[in-house]
Each structure stands twice: as structure tokens, then as C-alpha cells.
Amino acid sequence: MPESLSRRDFMKVSVYFVGGIVGATVGLPAVGYLIDPALGGVAKEAWIPLGKLADMPEVGKPYPFSFTRVQVNGWERTATSHGGFVIRKSDAPDDLVILNSRCTHLACTVNWKEEERVFLCPCHDASFDAEGAVLDGPPPRPLDRYAEFRVTEDGILEIFYKEG
């Protein structure tokens, strides 16, 4: 520190220094405050239990299921319903097709029609076969599948659900 530093200059430097510290202690948290929702927030995922596999004994018969996911965005909670069908392709416990009942055209919910053995979409008369392949109508691709599933020790069928 030069000896010629005047009292006035010392005061000036002190004011700027203290002001800078005060500004930084408020300013830096303020940046964190602003960008907080952008941090974290990875896609949520979970294993969703659908029921006992023993309760879905028949091969080739679609067993419907549904579950609800709650999304929390800030102070708002949004519940979304999901549904689908479990179909046994054979007696083997891991030989399953698990379809999402959302029509791949415009997201209406498809229903199983036992007489014709097809999934019918009520919106535009699209139809899918028992494994989800498009038979008729505008859908661009087969029904989505929950590809990852497991059966727990208690015999509960669970699917892996990933948000988004």
C-alpha cells in the first residue's frame, strides 16, 4: 500500500470493496435463484406394479391395466392417467407383450373388441391386432410397448416407466 494513499482515496476504495462484497453475496445467490428450475429435473422413472401375473392366466387375452402419475412443477401438481394391456404370448412368464393403450395417431385410448380380436380406436376407427400392429386406419406406427418389465418374487408384474 503506497504511503501517499489519502484518507479520501482509502474511503473510496473501501466503499467499492465493501460494495462489491455485498453485491456478490446477494448477486451470486440471485443467479442461482433464477436458474434453479433449469438444474436437475432429470426424467423421472419408476417401476409400476400392474398386478399379479397369476391373475392374467389366459394366453392371447389382453388384460387391461391403468395407473396415474403425478407431476410436480413448482407449486402445481398435474396427474396424468396411463393405461394399457398385458397379453401373454405363451405360458412362459416372460413371454409377454405390454401395450400402451394410447393410439399412435392422435392419442385417443383404444379398446379391445373381443368379437373381432382387435384394438379399436374410437376417434378415427383405427384398428390394431392383438400385438399392436396396425391393421387399418391412419396410425403411423404400431401401439407403443412397455418393453422393460419384470416379475417380482411375490409374482407381481411391474413395468418400467420413464417420463417424457
Binding site: 445467490p29 440471485a30 435463484y33 433464477l34 434453479d36 428450475p37 407449486w75 402445481e76
Partner: peptide, 29 residues
Amino acid sequence: FLTVYYTPSPDHAYDSVNYIMNDVAFGWL
């Protein structure tokens, strides 16, 4: 800065203040 999260609606005002206080980084500050 508070208006970034605060919502002046009877449905959300209280919850948004709670959100600022408990969930946002440095919201309490």
C-alpha cells in the same frame, strides 16, 4: 426476482410463496 416465481392468484399465491421459501435455491434469502 420474486415475481419470477410468485403468482398473484388465490389458487396459487400461498403455494408459490411456499415454493419460493422451501424449494427454490436461495428463495428464502
